[in-house]
């Protein structure tokens, strides 16, 4: 069963035809060639496929694991993927901080973590260490040991605060 869907990704409108059983992750990677969103487990456990989504009528973007969303569900939704975090050539403070602190190694978990960290800072601009850890508990990283990731999120939070001043 196929569905014709309208939605936006990173601000751009799309009209696609997707099968019922395909996931948002598949649509992004295979149909829209937005391969920054990674497939790490297809079970909602690793967080590598996290994207931001604003459902029709919702007031804000929330992170979800795109392997856990069926394509036909996203009709009318707005989606932000890792490719949409930077604006023009300007990296998000989180992206900048990940490079500077050494928070990325193999890089495979990085897009999902950045997405989730961005959602965290949007709802809580000044999170504590414990709050950052809790917010990222569903994003597995095997390389870094997480410490630099926590440093990066804190650094980005400071940058964002300074930018607001």
């Amino acid at each position: 069963m196929n569905h014709t869907l309208h939605f936006t990704v990173n601000g751009e409108p799309y009209e696609i035809v997707a099968a019922s059983h395909h996931t948002l992750l598949q649509v992004l990677r295979e149909q829209l060639a937005l391969t920054g969103t990674k497939n790490g487990c297809e079970a909602g456990e690793c967080g590598a496929c996290a994207v931001l989504i604003r459902w029709p009528g919702a007031d804000r973007f929330e992170p979800v694991n795109s392997c856990m969303v069926l394509a036909p569900e996203v009709a009318g939704a707005e989606i932000v993927t890792i490719e949409g975090l930077a604006h023009d050539d300007q990296l998000d403070p989180l992206q900048e901080a990940f490079i500077v602190t050494g928070a990325t190694q193999c890089g495979f978990c990085t897009p999902g973590i950045l997405i989730n960290a961005r959602a965290l800072l949007d709802r809580n601009p000044d999170p504590s260490d414990a709050e950052i850890r809790a917010a990222l508990v569903g994003n597995l990283c095997r390389c870094t040991g997480y410490i630099r990731i926590l440093d990066a999120v804190k650094m980005a939070a400071r940058t964002r605060k300074e930018a607001l001043r």
Partner: peptide, 9 residues
């Protein structure tokens, strides 16, 4: 339960 993003689903 699980993680923040899973709790959104």
């Amino acid at each position: 339960v699980a993680s923040y993003q899973l709790r959104n689903r």
